[in-house]
Nucleic acid binder design. Structure first.
Lengths: 241, 241
DNA sequence: CGACAATATCGAGTGCTATTCAATTAGCCT
DNA sequence: AGGCTAATTGAATAGCACTCGATATTGTCG
């Protein structure tokens, strides 16, 4: 694969370009036909190269698929970090909500890839690599959670990996439910409640108990009603301006 | 497959017995070698029949695998129901804990089968059947949850499928974490905290508080602040009574 | 520029398996 | 027994990932 002699820069660039071409072709074919349904011949044809050439870039079909998945998850990681960066709110739960919303939407939109990722879980040897990329992806959550603990917004005795499993496990299952129950218009309709639920759950279970955050909803509602009535009364007493 | 003429009872029994023999052999081979690694020849040999005969009982390798999985999940369903029946406590959360403990342990012990189940998610056509059996399995949780709502132990406005996804999604991810982080002694050591966490979470988030309706606290607080400001303004405009 | 070396590409072959099917056997009824 | 149907078999088929010797391309040095 890699030559002993150092190839010129243009040469290396050419190889990398071809690598990308193969990867793109593979990506398209895998998404269209799944792992087993994809034929190496078709991938090669789509990439515009011979079948054997593919094997001088990737050892096997499984490894090719793995490369596709790595590219995919790396992209997701960048996007997730971007989402976190773009949320100006410093409130932990607002950021958690943004992450949950992004993740849920991503999992639904890219269901093909998610399924492919888990389909590869058959071959033991290559799973580990894929798992590294998952780890990298979920690190976004980890950072958020740890910072929340540092700031005292979250219970200090909460266990990170358990919270992480709850977060991503629930969202993945929810995504599947949403997919199957509502085929069409899965873009925004029924997702919001799921995310709200998740955030509320984290607030209720992981939120620091001693926190100044409002807890008594009924009290709030009562106060709200009283205020509304007050305003009503006041408004009527006002002279026309 | 099924004959038009009604075979004698012994004949039917014989066929069913052979079906079971094939299923058992397939189960063993699939667990040992995974889906791709399993060879139909070996399954046939283990069942003590010719290779072609398998195909007069099951259309294809995938369908054979599916039958194995169905048998597996049906067994789990029975076991889960047994667990529920054996818990004498009527307390909802005690029963929930028993179910969680059973499920987590099962998922860890039978990780092979769980992975095989999801590995089949490649072939679209056959997924549905598998999904029915999953539905049947999770119905145990559904009944528990609905009864909890009926009795007022759980919030009435909780959405069943969301709670279900949180329950099983979290447990599956936790199981995977437990598997990978602690190879040995995954029997009892680190499982308990996960289950406790899950039950505590359900208690905190889904347990009926005294109030009938839960509202979005942040939204309420915002409205409250706005109203207060409004009142302030209005008050200043008012003539002294 | 031309020849040689190194490297990249190709696609027809190889090997491995799921699946089929024509031939054979076993079961059952009169 | 003999004939009929259904079950069984395993050798043949077919499809696909992967290999490998032949060929083309690129790079280098005189």
């Amino acid at each position: 694969m890699a030559s002993n002699a150092i190839p010129s820069e243009t040469q290396r660039a050419k190889l990398e370009r071809k690598e990308r071409v193969i990867l793109d072709a593979a990506r398209a074919i895998f998404v269209d036909h799944g792992f087993d349904g994809a034929r190496m011949q078709e991938i090669a044809r789509r990439a515009g190269i011979g079948e054997g050439t593919v094997y001088s870039y990737y050892e096997s079909k499984a490894e090719l698929m793995l490369a596709v998945l790595q590219q995919f998850w790396d992209g997701l990681t960048l996007e997730a970090e971007g989402v976190m960066a773009s949320v100006e709110a410093t409130d932990l739960f607002a950021r958690l909500e943004a992450l949950a919303r992004y993740h849920l939407n991503t999992v639904i939109v890219n269901a093909d890839f998610i399924n492919l990722t888990f389909a590869l879980r058959r071959n033991n040897s290559e799973v580990s690599v894929s798992r590294d990329h998952l780890r990298h992806y979920v690190a976004v959550f980890d950072r958020l959670f740890l910072r929340g603990q540092d700031r005292g917004e979250l219970r200090a005795d909460a266990v990170l990996w358990q919270a992480r499993d709850i977060f991503y496990g629930s969202l993945e299952y929810s995504a599947r439910s949403i997919e199957t129950t509502m085929e069409a218009d899965r873009s925004t309709r029924e997702q919001l409640p799921v995310v709200d639920e998740m955030v509320a759950l984290f607030r209720a279970h992981y939120g620091a108990t001693g926190n100044p955050v409002i807890v008594d909803e009924v009290g709030l509602a009562t106060r709200l009603d009283k205020l509304a009535a007050q305003i009503d009364t006041l408004s009527r007493c006002l002279p026309r301006p």
